[in-house]
Simulated scan of single mutants.
Amino acid sequence: MIAIDSSVYISELTKGDDSAMVKWLNDEVIYQNTLRIPFPYKIEHARDFLHYVRLMRKEHAQPTEWAIRNYTGEMIGCVGFSRIYGKYSHKDELGYWLAAPYRGQGIMTRVVEVVSNWGFQRFGLWRLEAPIFPHNPASGKVLEKNGFVAEGTLHNYVMKENKPMDVIMYAKTKRL
């Protein structure tokens, strides 16, 4: 468990988080603002993701994904590193989502600060990337508050619903 503040903390995901994931991820806003979360979100999607999380934890000998939890322990979001560049890379991609009732309270800004520092310190990363869709400026604000810089628009960078989509690439680098 890693305390974020007096109202939320992050911890490893568990099998019991599958129902919370189904509850919160059946939200079209989350679907529209993320690349890898399907809609509608089903229990098998949650179980597949939790299996992936266990594999990544084993491979890296530490968590790469965390549940964001409120003070009662309920999962209200998720944050983590995709490890798309591989275990030994100097960079990684950061992703996150937060349940609708908890948005707009600064929670994700505080979570991204803690997890970014984890990436630099525990994974030895030198560069964090966070591609966001242009229609999601709130995510850009979260990143900017944490020292990420919009490096530019990457055209046709991802495919969503079989259509090429642009992203704005945000990055934060560790300084010597």
Rank of each mutant, 00 (worst) to 15 (best):
G80L: 06
T64R: 15
V112C: 03
L154P: 11
P134K: 07
V114N: 00
E144I: 13
G77H: 13
P134S: 02
K163G: 05
Y41M: 07
R175L: 12
V167D: 01
N70D: 15
E113T: 09
R54E: 15
I30Q: 08
I168Y: 07
E59Y: 07
Y41Q: 02
A99W: 13
D17F: 03
T64Y: 11
K87G: 04
I68N: 00
L98R: 08
R54T: 13
M21R: 14
G152Y: 02
G77D: 14
P38S: 03
K163P: 00
S116H: 10
D48S: 12
D27E: 05
L35Y: 01
Q105S: 06
T14K: 05
E129K: 02
E12K: 00
N162I: 08
L125S: 13
V8M: 08
V53R: 09
L125D: 09
D166V: 00
I132Q: 12
T109K: 09
M21I: 13
I84Q: 04
V29F: 02
E44L: 06
E113P: 02
M108E: 04
G140H: 12
Y41D: 04
T14V: 12
K23C: 10
N70W: 01
K172S: 10
L94R: 01
A150S: 11
L94A: 04
G152P: 07
G80H: 05
Q62V: 01
S6K: 12
Q32N: 05
P101S: 12
L98K: 06
W97Y: 11
N117Q: 09
M1R: 09
F133D: 02
R47Q: 15
H90A: 03
K141A: 06
V53K: 11
M75R: 06
H45R: 13
R122K: 15
T34I: 03
I132H: 09
H155N: 09
V53P: 04
Y157L: 02
E59N: 14
D17P: 00
T173R: 14
G77L: 12
W126T: 00
Y71I: 04
S11H: 03
V114P: 01
K141L: 05
F120A: 07
H135M: 04
T34Q: 04
A138T: 10
K15R: 06
E28I: 15
P134N: 02
K91A: 08
D5T: 12
A100V: 00
V112Q: 05
N26W: 02
G95F: 11
D27Q: 03
N70Y: 02
V111I: 02
T109I: 09
M75F: 00
Y31D: 13
A138R: 13
D18P: 01
Q105P: 07
L50W: 04
G73E: 04
K15C: 03
I107N: 12
K163R: 15
S89H: 08
G106V: 02
K174A: 15
C78L: 11
N136F: 09
V22Y: 04
Y71N: 06
H90D: 10
L176Q: 13
V79D: 04
